[in-house]
Design a binder for these strands. Sequence first.
DNA 1: CTGAAAGCGCTAACAA
DNA 2: TTGTTAGCGCTTTCAG
Lengths: 342, 342
Amino acid sequence: MTADGAPGRPNRPPTMKEIAVAAGVGLGTVSRALSDGHHVSAATRARVQDAARELRYRSSALGRGLKRQQTDTIGLIVADLSNPFYGEFAQGVLTGAQARNRHVIVGSSGEDPASELDYIDLLLEQRVGGIIAFPTGQNIESWEAARALGVRIVFADRTIDGFDAPSVVVDNAGGARELTQHLIDLGHQRIGYLGGPLDVSSGRLREEGYRAALAGAGIPAVELLIVRQGFIRETAHAHALRLLDERPSAIVASNNVLGEAVLAALRDRGLRYPADVSIAIFDDVPWSRLTQPAMTVQAQPSAELSRTAVELLLSNEAADAEIMLPTQLIVRESTRTFTSRL
Amino acid sequence: MTADGAPGRPNRPPTMKEIAVAAGVGLGTVSRALSDGHHVSAATRARVQDAARELRYRSSALGRGLKRQQTDTIGLIVADLSNPFYGEFAQGVLTGAQARNRHVIVGSSGEDPASELDYIDLLLEQRVGGIIAFPTGQNIESWEAARALGVRIVFADRTIDGFDAPSVVVDNAGGARELTQHLIDLGHQRIGYLGGPLDVSSGRLREEGYRAALAGAGIPAVELLIVRQGFIRETAHAHALRLLDERPSAIVASNNVLGEAVLAALRDRGLRYPADVSIAIFDDVPWSRLTQPAMTVQAQPSAELSRTAVELLLSNEAADAEIMLPTQLIVRESTRTFTSRL
DNA sequence: CTGAAAGCGCTAACAA
DNA sequence: TTGTTAGCGCTTTCAG
């Protein structure tokens, strides 16, 4: 009725040796019977398994890891789990890991290199077998060190110059360019851009895509219309307001959080979209089709992104394998033909 | 210039023994110098630390955990990381854990007891020190077993009948009641409810709150207006449509994903809110203020929820400590006075 | 303050 | 097929 052992006092789980005694076999036999099952007679194996079940045996990943000098652990470093993009990605990684009998230590860097470094060290201490990360772009030496230690590194969404790791990214430049081009096709010229920092490759490439579209149409880039910030919620609102005050006729927001900020800023200023300003967002999230009008977005295949990242981690792709996934432009109602105000 | 050691071949990280040799001291001294630093002369400690830095020493959590028979690992089992509510919660746990030099193995059960069981077993194998979970309500025996093994359990948002664990919840019943009462105060009588499963305590309590509000106002509960489903995205849309077809004048959605589904269903049916039907959502998310009209919600203090969960896990509160956090009704524009159609 | 040694639970190599 | 043994890296006695 009650739990076995003295309740209240933390019980130690049974060890293999105890199973061996209970089953009347040697230690090695238990190990074999419980793992591959090779080199053990069916009868013995059954006896061992019975004993293990009886005593509620739980193998110790600690002992196994120490002996084998490797673990089944995957490290995942995202930028911010409260951003649904990372949430979906992490969910995908978890699902993939569970299917392969692995578990995941998750870290969230907040785009802060110091925090990222913390996590790298931590994961190394845990002797993880591999790490999937959205790198901040710093800490190259630690990434090198990790790899030198035999830890497989896979970068998602971003790459780092000077450090080749297998990576899976979306076509950031192409996607941003297409998004901007869509606005240009609608007749917009004064197109604002609310973007992330340039030292993150995805941020840089999206801005390049934006600029490329402008250049392709012969529209000069106006620096006042290009506002950069940290991809982070905190400061986004103020930046969005600043951008709005430059009176663009359309705005490209380079991720979903920034898109939220633009909408909030719009509301603050009493402006309406797409009447007063067209809005296009890089990154799709569930709410984008719920707003009235619904948002025009460049969707990223987040499920495929995470699935590919896990595959890449567990496969033997070369270090310079860079898989690029296409984005998909979804035109809804937040963008419309430019009409001069007044 | 290149990494030390033969590049390409997975290098083994240096062990304490190697540090000991390099620093010309004994193994035990290295351990002491690198951990508490007690019982070691300042000079020796400095020498050891230098050697450790020199050789890029990374302690092995495996060795330490095996010897100490405990780890700094925290297990976290949520229902679905792609749901922003869990994303925010997980982010909070990660932040709290990092501040306390702990790391987190995250699992996502998808509300599936079998998956939850998988994760419990896995975390037990890893010899985690504690687990924070949104329990499915099943697997009581495994929770018991975990506790018997000395693993501290903290439940978040939900409790399980028949298993007392320290827990932090929000006032689900009170919050749902208040949300429903708000609708009643606006003159609504035919109030639909889109809810979660009854075997999850938060789902059950929210429905009870809804029913209590109705009962308090002398409004009979109409079972056709009460639609239950899995708190999950997949089937939510169809259920929302079904509920809409019952022609309620107002709807309570019992979490943010269900709220999304209601909005999408509304759009499908060509209905408008709050003109055709008032909408109130349990659970606040960033997009709720971005829709036009903005959503009336019952906000949960997710930051406080996760912070409390971590504190509870790391403290020594009694097993039956149940901390209940208040929710906050935020009335926006999606609810309005009932006016008979036609 | 410091060194030596035992042993945590497990796997793998070697004997039998 | 099975038992025995060594040892993974670390902490923690116990001597000195």
